[in-house]
Nucleic acid binder design. Structure first.
Length: 431
RNA sequence: GGAGAGGUGGCAGAGUGGCUGAAUGCAGCGGUCUUGAAAACCGCCGAGGGUUUGUAGCCCUCCGUGGGUUCGAAUCCCACCCUCUCCGCCA
């Protein structure tokens, strides 16, 4: 959520910045709403003040010895006059405040100046590449073909029997590799990068989703569970982990807070029909290790670099070739001010595919969820900055390993870094 | 599922109808003292919004949420949510 005061004072600049990401900010509508709010607020406050004063007078009179009935009678006429208008004005003010909140909640974050202008992912800016692309002197198989033949295996048909399209079943060594990846990543981030591990609910209420920005606009991307209470399956650990600090005022010395969290993620993938239908690139359910940071505003730029580096460290340790791109304005998520994607090389597709998305949300989410810190310079609670990034998506990491580490006979070599997590095993054989 | 207790400021914890936006303690901030620190002592210290050139003043709202009673509600009534304790059940 944008700061309403900034919207008042720097409306034109914000409008221009939002136009870069294709959002049309209706400043006239805002100004009109804000003006109405001001009138309604002032009027209702005036009436409330008058009413309060009259009530107080009754108390004073009674205390001074006036009989209660007489004291009431003295202000009855005034009160009657006030009440004629009061309820209506208070209701009007409440209504307009609600409309302004709704208006603000649907405005996306302002992109940072360095975010390149662009329509879609083709306009993203490549920042750097890392690792050598593998060369194969045989016909490469994709992970679906490889996985099906591997010991244990990767099975989409049986998953479909259970749950339909976009689900996977893993067994034996493949399931073990997947689990090893998660353990390996968690251990690296907790041990080497200083993140505190958290375990959180996978079902959250609408407030949490509003806090991070999935609601109110993107409800169709979520799975809502049937039942009395309004609960949704989390689309990413970002939601529960960031919202851990909703409605809190943190002391300066508590920051930065760095959390790593492994959860399944559930996404309806509405609107991506026909996209990545083969394999486990795009699933309704996948595992992810997420990095979340809450930092002082002045630290968030450095934090994004560091956090991205932490995600990169996983790919480097796994010796997977990847590149880092800065998302253009058109590809930027609703809540993000700046996003760096990590894209891993997939030999079967001969291109880089997203495996991590690291974002700085600045104070956008913090404002929505009222996560603040006490700024020692001002002594006041102020919105803090939030960031997060996948470190990494486990399903896609598995795909990348199968494809990049495949051998001519259909077996897959286990990356050295993962071997300790797989009982020292060096390869997974074809069945 | 049954019975009971409770939700108040960063935290702990008073407060059963008006002078309570809220005692007190802790934490925090400023100061006195001290070579320095600690202790002691003095003072300040909830949040959001509006008005305003203003971090001054003034005004409004907020004691789980939403209704209600009343001239007046943290305080009384109703509903809901949440937490805790005991019993039952259960991984």
């Amino acid at each position: 959520m944008l700061d309403i005061r900034r919207l008042r004072n720097e409306g034109e600049e914000i409008r221009a910045a939002l136009a870069r990401r294709g959002f049309e900010l209706d400043l006239e509508a805002f100004a009109s709403l804000d003006g109405q709010r001001r009138d309604a607020d002032m009027r209702s406050q005036e009436l409330q003040a008058a009413r309060k004063k009259a009530s107080k007078k009754v108390g004073e009179l009674v205390k001074a010895g006036t009989p209660v009935d007489e004291a009431k009678a003295q202000v009855a006429e005034t009160l009657q006059e006030i009440d004629r208008e009061l309820d209506e004005e208070v209701e009007r003010a409440r209504l307009i405040q609600g409309r302004i909140r709704d208006f603000l909640m649907e405005i996306p974050n302002v992109p940072d100046p360095e975010v390149p202008a662009g329509e879609d992912e083709d306009d993203n800016e490549e920042l750097r590449c890392h690792g050598e692309l593998p060369r194969f002197d045989f016909a490469v198989r994709d992970h679906v073909e490889l996985g099906a033949a591997l010991e244990g295996g990767l099975d989409f048909d049986r998953a479909a029997k259970l749950s339909g399209a976009r689900f996977a079943v893993m067994q034996g060594a493949v399931a073990g590799l997947h689990r090893a990846l998660i353990n390996f990543m968690l251990s690296m981030h907790t041990g080497r990068h200083g993140y505190q591990e958290v375990y959180v609910p996978y079902l959250v209420g609408p407030e949490a989703l509003r806090g991070t920005g999935q609601l109110p606009k993107f409800g169709e991307d979520l799975f809502r569970v049937e039942g009395e209470r309004e609960l949704y399956l989390i689309p990413t650990a970002e939601v529960p982990v960031t919202n851990l600090y909703a409605d809190e005022i943190l002391e300066a010395q508590q920051l930065p807070l760095k959390h790593v969290c492994h959860t399944p993620c559930f996404r309806s993938e509405a609107g991506s029909h026909g996209k990545d239908t083969r394999g486990m690139i795009r699933q309704h359910q996948f595992e992810k290790v997420e990095l979340v940071q809450l930092v002082r505003p002045e630290d968030s730029d450095r934090a994004l670099e560091a956090l991205t580096g932490h995600a990169e460290a996983v790919l480097q340790a796994l010796e997977l070739p990847y590149r880092v791109v800065r998302l253009c304005t058109g590809d930027l998520g609703f809540s993000a001010a700046c996003t760096l994607d990590l894209e891993v090389w997939l030999p079967s597709q001969q291109r880089y595919r997203e495996i991590s998305s690291c974002s700085n949300f600045r104070d956008f989410q913090a404002r929505r969820m009222q996560a603040r810190w006490r700024n020692p310079d001002t002594g006041k609670p102020e919105p803090l900055h939030t960031l997060n990034g996948s470190g990494l998506a486990a399903g896609r990491a598995l795909v990348a390993i199968l494809e990049n580490y495949q051998n001519e006979d259909g077996s897959v070599t286990i990356p050295e870094a993962l071997r300790p997590w797989m009982g020292g095993r060096e390869r997974i054989g074809a069945q």
